[in-house]
């Protein structure tokens, strides 16, 4: 059985995520199989494309309960980009409700005076606002690679562990118990991004 399951939601960049986690732990698998996921020590939910597409795929593949059960089990989960956004109750991007593990909604990045292009694409600084094992060895204001048009707005600000600034200051990373989520793409953020996978791998063992 694998140590880490990378959730196959059919539409994500799980190949890049796999290549990154491979550097630290080869015992990982891209899967949507209940047994494999349940027997893993950690779960990664990657995300590219839209929240509606991902939520539809999660529904079609009967993954909703698996994710919720994994969260209840207390084992670490790392969600990336759209994988983070689907944790919320709803999103301005689509009509389908999210998983609702996190109270709050996902909102469109405001185009202030047309000065800020959407998507927010490129390297931006991550301000670390709370300590977390996932950021071990990473200093505040390190650059990470972002690509998104919507941002997460949790009701409970206490769960925000990282923020970034693009037209407004926005939530870029959260931790709620064993649930970790980042808006940027650590698998595309060079050595600092790989550190996040290295840390996650330490957290599961």
């Amino acid at each position: 059985m694998p140590d880490i399951s990378i959730l196959n939601t059919k539409s994500a960049n799980f190949h890049s995520v796999k290549k990154a986690i491979d550097l630290y732990n080869k015992q990982n698998i891209i899967t949507s199989d209940i047994n494999e996921i349940n027997n893993s020590k950690g779960l990664i939910i990657p995300g590219v494309s839209s929240t509606d597409t991902v939520m539809q795929n999660i529904k079609d593949l009967n993954l909703e309960k698996i994710i919720l059960d994994f969260y209840s089990s207390g084992k670490p989960i790392l969600c990336i980009c759209v994988g983070m956004q689907i944790l919320f109750e709803n999103s301005e991007e689509g009509v389908k409700p999210g998983l609702g593990i996190i109270e709050g909604s996902v909102k469109k990045i405001p185009k202030l005076k047309n000065k800020f292009k959407v998507p927010h694409m490129g390297w931006n600084q991550l301000e670390l606002v709370k300590e977390s094992e996932i950021f071990k060895g990473i200093s505040t204001n390190t650059n990470f690679y972002f690509v998104h048009s919507y941002f997460c707005d949790p009701l409970d600000e206490e769960i925000i562990i990282g923020k970034t600034n693009y037209s407004i200051q926005m939530c870029a990373a959260i931790q709620k118990n064993n649930l970790l989520a980042v808006q940027f793409h650590p698998e595309k953020s060079g050595k600092d991004g790989l550190k996040i996978y290295e840390n996650f791998n330490k957290m599961i063992s």
Binding site: H15, S16, E187, K188, K191
Partner: peptide, 8 residues
Amino acid sequence: VSSVVFIP
């Protein structure tokens, strides 16, 4: 390249 270089 994508197995060794982790940028877009």
